[in-house]
Amino acid sequence: METIIFDGDDGIQLEFGILEQTRVNGHNYLLVVDPDEEDEEEGSEAYILKDISEEEDEEACYVFVEDDTEYDAVFKVFETMLEDVEFVK
């Protein structure tokens, strides 16, 4: 599984496994999980990250999607893309 390093607000680096990526309304999104917290019975908690970087930026800059409307819309896209994966919201 490909991973991404995310710099948290408190300066701690978090590593996430990338399950899928998509583009919605001109923005790139990643569906990620914490690979260290996988539970065989309950699975992993998934997060949606949004790329807010500008074209001239050398590296992508991601933030957690916190807006409920945006989250729900992007979540539905990922749910369709990953039909064989059961999501608990």
Results as ranks from 00 to 15, higher is better:
residue 85 V to F: 09
residue 16 F to A: 04
residue 53 S to M: 01
residue 41 E to K: 14
residue 86 E to W: 09
residue 63 V to A: 04
residue 51 D to W: 00
residue 66 E to S: 11
residue 32 V to R: 01
residue 67 D to I: 09
residue 16 F to H: 05
residue 37 E to G: 11
residue 40 E to Q: 10
residue 48 I to E: 01
residue 17 G to S: 11
residue 68 D to Y: 05
residue 4 I to F: 06
residue 78 F to Q: 03
residue 62 Y to G: 03
residue 61 C to H: 14
residue 10 D to E: 11
residue 66 E to G: 05
residue 28 N to K: 10
residue 70 E to F: 08
residue 46 A to C: 14
residue 17 G to C: 07
residue 19 L to C: 12
residue 32 V to I: 11
residue 32 V to C: 05
residue 25 N to H: 10
residue 38 E to Q: 08
residue 25 N to R: 13
residue 58 E to H: 08
residue 9 D to R: 13
residue 7 D to G: 05
residue 16 F to G: 04
residue 48 I to C: 05
residue 46 A to Y: 12
residue 65 V to W: 00
residue 31 L to R: 02
residue 13 Q to G: 04
residue 2 E to W: 07
residue 58 E to N: 09
residue 27 H to E: 08
residue 51 D to C: 00
residue 59 E to F: 13
residue 43 G to D: 02
residue 84 D to I: 03
residue 83 E to M: 09
residue 77 V to A: 10
residue 63 V to Q: 09
residue 71 Y to F: 15
residue 51 D to R: 00
residue 33 V to I: 15
residue 61 C to E: 14
residue 50 K to I: 13
residue 38 E to F: 15
residue 31 L to Q: 01
residue 20 E to M: 07
residue 27 H to P: 02
residue 28 N to A: 08
residue 9 D to L: 11
residue 4 I to T: 07
residue 70 E to P: 04
residue 18 I to M: 00
residue 37 E to S: 14
residue 45 E to T: 14
residue 86 E to R: 12
residue 32 V to A: 05
residue 8 G to D: 13
residue 53 S to W: 00
residue 22 T to I: 06
residue 60 A to Y: 01
residue 36 D to Q: 15
residue 23 R to W: 03
residue 82 L to C: 15
residue 86 E to H: 09
residue 65 V to I: 07
residue 31 L to G: 08
residue 26 G to Y: 01
residue 3 T to W: 01
residue 53 S to Q: 00
residue 14 L to F: 15
residue 85 V to N: 06
residue 6 F to A: 05
residue 57 D to I: 07
residue 42 E to M: 12
residue 4 I to C: 05
residue 84 D to F: 10
residue 44 S to I: 01
residue 44 S to M: 08
residue 67 D to A: 11
residue 86 E to A: 10
residue 71 Y to P: 00
residue 1 M to A: 14
residue 76 K to I: 07
residue 21 Q to S: 14
residue 43 G to N: 03
residue 20 E to Y: 07
residue 42 E to H: 08
residue 38 E to W: 12
residue 47 Y to I: 08
residue 22 T to Y: 02
residue 71 Y to S: 02
residue 18 I to K: 01
residue 23 R to I: 14
residue 77 V to T: 15
residue 78 F to V: 04
residue 28 N to C: 09
residue 34 D to R: 06
residue 56 E to Q: 12
residue 42 E to P: 02
residue 70 E to A: 04
residue 13 Q to P: 04
residue 76 K to H: 11
